[in-house]
């Protein structure tokens, strides 16, 4: 089946509304939130964790601010809490900052725990922002939610290790094993998601992006860091370097995944012609779904 279109594209096309700036919100914001969550669970130093997480989330939001058409009206983003996951994401971000601020100022674990919960909400909102995008088949797939959550936590674990090493020249084994587990969870989420997309829920070109991403993502950004963590367990002398490398790869893998998901995998729905119309004394004929077969 071949479908040709004029300049008014009828087949799915890569969305051009959100570029690297939006991707950065998912990349940095998700990683920052993940850092808050995992750092809290792993018992990382609260103040640096909060500062780094806040910086990352802030950087992501700043990128989005640069992308919107009317940046000076940005506060209007809070006006639709009832149905908009973007509004909810913004509210969650405010809560994250409020609680993080409280945690930094008060040095108390309560606001920190609240910030962690707000970070969970923030990441969840990001995932739901994608699934609510009914015009982008690769996003509206429900398995995006576990994938986004898993990668956020995985990146958070990686960042926790990197932060720990930076601050204390130490890579806690518990955090390393947590990363190992999260890598497995993310890989599983990715495989389920990829399998779902490859079952025909997205246009052909989106599937091609998935296929191209699958091998490097699985091997270089999941298999390799997992192997490095295992190596660290049996080779104590190289443990630090191996875990650090694994952490870096885990973070990079998440960022690669999200950049692909937000940009190159994001093909539009295109048109569907269920049936070709009758033309005068002729007959109707089979329809077409440009870009899907």
């Amino acid at each position: 089946m071949s479908v040709i279109a004029g300049r008014a594209v009828s087949g799915p096309r890569q969305q051009a509304n959100w570029d690297w700036r939006a991707a950065c919100n998912f990349i940095a914001g998700g990683a920052g939130a993940g850092l808050l969550i995992v750092g809290d669970i792993a018992g990382s130093a609260p103040r640096p964790t909060v500062l780094l997480a806040g910086a990352l989330i802030g950087f992501g939001l700043a990128c989005v601010w640069l992308e919107i058409g009317r940046p000076w009206r940005a506060l209007n983003v809070f006006l639709h809490l009832r149905t908009s996951w973007m509004t909810r994401e913004a509210v969650a971000a405010v809560l994250v900052y409020a609680f993080c601020g409280g945690a930094v100022l008060l040095g108390s674990p309560v606001p920190l725990r609240a910030a962690t919960l707000a970070a969970v909400a923030f990441v969840y909102c990001q995932a739901r922002i994608l699934t609510a995008s009914r015009g982008i088949p690769a996003w509206r797939e429900p398995l995006v939610v576990p994938l986004i959550l898993a990668t956020s936590l995985t990146e958070g674990a990686g960042l926790t290790l990197l932060l720990s090493f930076t601050l204390a020249r130490a890579v806690p084994a518990s955090a390393a094993w947590m990363l190992f587990g999260l890598l497995a969870a993310r890989w599983l989420s990715w495989r389920l998601y990829a399998a779902r997309l490859n079952s025909g829920t997205v246009p052909v070109k989106a599937r091609a992006v998935v296929d191209a991403l699958d091998r490097p993502l699985s091997l270089a950004f999941h298999g390799l860091p997992a192997a490095l963590i295992l190596a660290a367990a049996v080779l104590p002398e190289a443990a630090g370097a191996a875990v650090l490398a694994a952490a870096l790869l885990a973070v990079a893998g998440g960022w690669l995944l999200k950049s692909r998901l937000v940009t190159r995998m994001a093909f539009t729905q295109g048109v569907v012609l269920p049936i070709t119309p009758v033309r005068g004394g002729g007959l109707s004929g089979p329809g077409a779904r440009p870009g899907w077969q």
């Binding site: 969305q15 058409g69 973007m86």
Partner: peptide
């Protein structure tokens, strides 16, 4: 605010 979310 021109966030383009609606377009997606």
């Amino acid at each position: 605010i021109g966030c383009s979310y609606c377009a997606l």
